[in-house]
Simulated scan of single mutants.
Amino acid sequence: MNLKQIVSDGFSMKDIERRYSSFAFISLKTALYSYFSTYESSTLFIHRILNGNSSYVGKDTDRQYSTDYIEKYAETIIHFQHFIELVCKEILREENELLVLNIDKQHELFYKLLNKEEVTSSELEGIRTTEFNSTFDRLLGLIKAGKLDSKYNFFTSKKNKEALTQLNQLRNRIWHRGTFVLRYEALDIFIGQYILPIIKEIISLPEYIDTKSRWIYPPLELGIDPISELINESSTNSYNAGKFAFIKELGRASYNNPLIHNWNIFNKDIIKNAVNTAQAELNYQSQGTTIYYCPVCGVQSLTSYEDSDGEQEADGSYSSYWTFSWYVKCHCCSFKISRELKNPKEYGYALPDYWYSYNH
């Protein structure tokens, strides 16, 4: 095949039986996973934020941001914006395809669409759609004019309009210049307080209720919903970076949960391997000293790791010596947090105290 044949060898999602007609919910899943992963990607500098030292900004502090965090930030912004843009266009397409197309010179196609004649996906191939700003302005205008269902009215609130405008600008700063990155706390507040409430409104629309299986994470053993928890936490008066980090890690690990609902024949082997790995860690030079049930997957494979330290005298002896837990990791779903976070009970969750210490 030549190059043109190679890049033409595909299919339109509209031509197959799917509950969504675009990549919208693929982008939503990617955005959520990327955002949830920003705690995991921030281990080199997260202690400054959690200890209240984030006011020190500048080149020296910003150099601590890892490449992984920058990648996760970019994926978060780009895919949330992409999801919103595709949803807005799908809403307009339900009224008429013309509302999202630039086809000034495609006269026959324009006529067909104007008269709602059948149009094949091949006829729409290569036709450019409107930019986000034009799409969003048109959507808002039609909502205000009463031409679209009132269930979309949440788009028109001042807070949501400003949030989506800023989201698009952040996306453009990545897409066109590729130099600007929101710092950790700002990203948390922006996503939790402004973007996730819009996402929740969209996924609650009747036409999208059945799409959950395409993007949502498996249920958590802890019984909470990370999106709702982050929205609730954002509604409080003060931003708690530690609690945000804990919730995000729950969400990230839930996407990695390998246990398949109602597939016990496969789950048994997965659980057995995870439990055996946790036990091996427990037995290996006392590195893992306690095994908990994981709050994400529910498997007893969340292993605690210890370290020791002390005050050493000039002669090399220790006047005091203590051991402490510093890290827990699940060998099934990959949930992992370090002692930089508080014990979950301090965040309001009925879970064991993972962080402890004792003197020798």
Rank of each mutant, 00 (worst) to 15 (best):
D309G: 07
F154I: 10
D315M: 06
A278W: 01
T290V: 15
R339M: 10
S338Q: 11
T277Q: 12
A350C: 03
R19E: 15
I231S: 00
N264S: 10
G146E: 12
K272V: 02
R138P: 02
F324M: 04
E207Y: 03
A24D: 10
F190N: 01
L182I: 03
I49R: 04
Y284V: 08
Y194R: 05
V181R: 12
Y20S: 06
T130H: 12
I198G: 00
Y292H: 13
L28R: 01
L124H: 02
K151L: 12
Y194A: 04
M1I: 13
K29C: 11
N2D: 15
A163Y: 06
R93D: 10
I291T: 02
M1A: 14
A74F: 01
I143Y: 07
N283E: 10
D15N: 05
G242S: 00
L220W: 08
N51K: 04
L222F: 04
I191M: 08
Y73V: 10
S22V: 06
E75Q: 14
F110C: 03
E95R: 09
H47D: 15
V275Y: 00
H79W: 02
L114P: 03
S27F: 10
E346H: 02
I247C: 05
I216F: 09
E95N: 13
K105W: 05
S134E: 15
S317H: 08
S338T: 15
Y255Q: 05
T135L: 09
Y39A: 08
S235Y: 03
P258C: 03
I227R: 02
L101N: 00
T61F: 15
E85F: 09
K29F: 06
G126L: 03
R183N: 14
E131A: 12
C332L: 06
S27H: 11
D353S: 03
D137K: 15
E125N: 11
F324T: 09
E249G: 02
R214A: 15
K144V: 11
Y184S: 11
S228F: 02
S238E: 12
K159F: 09
F36M: 12
E17H: 06
W322V: 09
Q64R: 14
E95K: 14
R171Y: 09
T130Q: 07
S254Q: 03
S37C: 09
N232P: 05
T179C: 00
I6M: 07
N359Y: 10
D15C: 04
F80P: 06
A274I: 07
S42Y: 05
G52M: 05
Q81F: 10
T129M: 01
Y293L: 13
N343M: 05
S338G: 15
N267V: 05
I143S: 11
S320R: 05
C330R: 00
S41M: 11
N237S: 12
G10S: 11
E40K: 14
S234T: 06
V100Y: 02
I291H: 06
N232H: 13
T179A: 07
I203F: 00
Y39D: 12
K342P: 01
I16Y: 12
L139R: 12
K72T: 01
S308V: 13
K112W: 01
A163M: 01
L3N: 09
Q287P: 02
K151A: 12
S22C: 08
E233L: 14
K342R: 04
N262K: 05
Q300P: 10
S150Q: 04
I46D: 13
N96F: 06
K248F: 11
R214E: 13
D104F: 09
S54Q: 13
S254G: 11
T289K: 04
F324G: 08
I127A: 00
T165F: 14
K105D: 07
